[in-house]
Simulated scan of single mutants.
Amino acid sequence: MIQARIQARAPGAPPPPTVLHGAARDPATEAPRAVVAGIGFRHATLPEEIVALVAEGLRQADLAGARLAAIATAADRAGDPAIRAAAETLGVPLVAVDVEALREAGRRVVTRSVRIEALRGVGSLAEAAALAAAGPDARLVLPRIASAGATCALAASGDALPS
């Protein structure tokens, strides 16, 4: 279930990230989610690099025309201005995935980074975030790709999976 933090914000400020605690399905409809981009990034990464990497991921997965439902990252990084600006530029919500959900989804990642595994307990932050945000039936439609400062993976579930 996705739970949103509700807080006052300044006019024009991006909305706060959604915080994921468990399955990523809308409890009202139980509808499958569309494509979710999981993002890992270094502190100095610019939002333009993240946006370009998401676009490249969609292109590589032959999903350039697909509807991106959200971008997802670790909860402790979701407040970073770069990821918030990237989500705003892409016009999608930012899902902040908590440690438990990352580790649960981390069992299904296909890429392994020794550094990220030591830091986060998952082989790929991007893949785990995408899988967690897309829900328990999600599968990767694009394993992790990388730029100089970011990683991106794409996941979808149910009917949202491309044929």
Rank of each mutant, 00 (worst) to 15 (best):
A75W: 12
E88G: 15
P14V: 01
T73E: 08
R115A: 13
L53R: 06
V36E: 01
G65A: 11
A44S: 12
L68Q: 06
A156Y: 02
R9K: 13
Q3C: 11
Q60T: 11
R42L: 06
S124F: 04
A55R: 05
R112V: 15
P32M: 08
H43R: 13
L125C: 12
G38H: 04
A132T: 08
G123D: 09
E56K: 00
A31C: 01
T18M: 10
G38P: 04
A75V: 15
A150Y: 07
A87M: 13
T89G: 14
T73S: 13
P32A: 13
G12V: 13
G57P: 09
L63E: 09
A134Y: 01
A155R: 00
L68M: 09
A148T: 09
G22T: 03
P27H: 06
V109I: 12
V99P: 07
A61L: 12
A23S: 11
A128T: 09
S113D: 07
T29E: 06
T18R: 09
S147Q: 02
A85M: 03
V110S: 15
D26M: 11
L131I: 02
R77F: 12
A160V: 10
A156H: 08
A10F: 14
A156Q: 06
P143H: 08
R103V: 01
I50N: 00
I145H: 01
V99S: 14
R77I: 02
A133C: 04
G12R: 10
I39N: 04
A23V: 10
R67C: 09
D137H: 02
I145F: 00
A44N: 07
L125F: 07
T111I: 07
A133S: 06
T45E: 04
T29Q: 07
V51K: 03
D76I: 13
V54N: 05
G149Q: 04
A52H: 07
A72N: 04
L20R: 10
G40Q: 05
A69S: 14
I50C: 08
P15H: 06
R59A: 12
P14D: 00
A78Q: 07
G135D: 02
